Deep mutational scan, measured.
Amino acid sequence: KSEISQVFEIALKRNLPVNFEVARESGPPHMKNFVTKVSVGEFVGEGEGKSKKISKKNAAIAVLEEL
């Protein structure tokens, strides 16, 4: 299972809201860097990556460590 689906499963079991959002985009158009924030109830994680998908996955990994 992907880290993102694990976050949603845990949140569902604990009845917590999940929110993913792109917090920052930086860099030139051909080499963008994304920072995504995820919140699961009061737990927050942040991930960085060269694409929105990678930064979302890294944010999920960060919040899984707290859950």
Rank of each mutant, 00 (worst) to 15 (best):
A60Y: 05
V18M: 06
E9H: 10
P29M: 11
I54F: 02
V22Q: 13
E65V: 03
E48F: 14
K53Y: 10
A11F: 00
G45Q: 06
E65M: 07
E9Y: 07
K13T: 08
N33P: 06
K52W: 06
E42F: 06
E21P: 00
M31Q: 15
I61H: 09
N58S: 06
Q6C: 07
K13D: 07
I4Q: 02
S51R: 08
K50G: 09
P28F: 06
P17S: 14
P17G: 08
V63C: 08
V63N: 04
V18D: 01
R24E: 13
K13H: 10
P17D: 07
K1Y: 09
K50N: 14
K52Y: 07
V38P: 02
G49E: 01
L16R: 03
G41Q: 00
V22P: 15
G47A: 06
A23N: 13
I61G: 09
S39E: 10
E42S: 14
A60T: 05
G47P: 01
S5P: 04
A23Y: 12
N15H: 14
V44E: 10
S55C: 04
N19H: 14
E9F: 04
A59V: 00
I61C: 11
T36C: 15
G27K: 09
V44W: 11
A60I: 05
F20Q: 02
G47K: 01
E66M: 15
G47C: 00
L64K: 05
G47T: 00
F34P: 05
E3N: 06
R24T: 12
F43H: 14
S39D: 04
N58M: 12
M31H: 15
G45A: 15
V18N: 00
E66V: 15
E66L: 15
L16T: 03
L67A: 04
G47Q: 03
A11V: 00
A11R: 01
G41K: 00
V38L: 12
R14G: 06
A11Q: 02
I4N: 04
R14N: 09
K50S: 14
E9S: 09
V18C: 09
A23Q: 14
R24N: 09
G41I: 00
P28V: 07
P28Q: 09
E66A: 15
I54S: 12
H30M: 11
E48N: 13
V44F: 09
T36N: 02
V35L: 13
G27W: 05
P17I: 07
E42Y: 11
E46T: 15
Q6E: 13
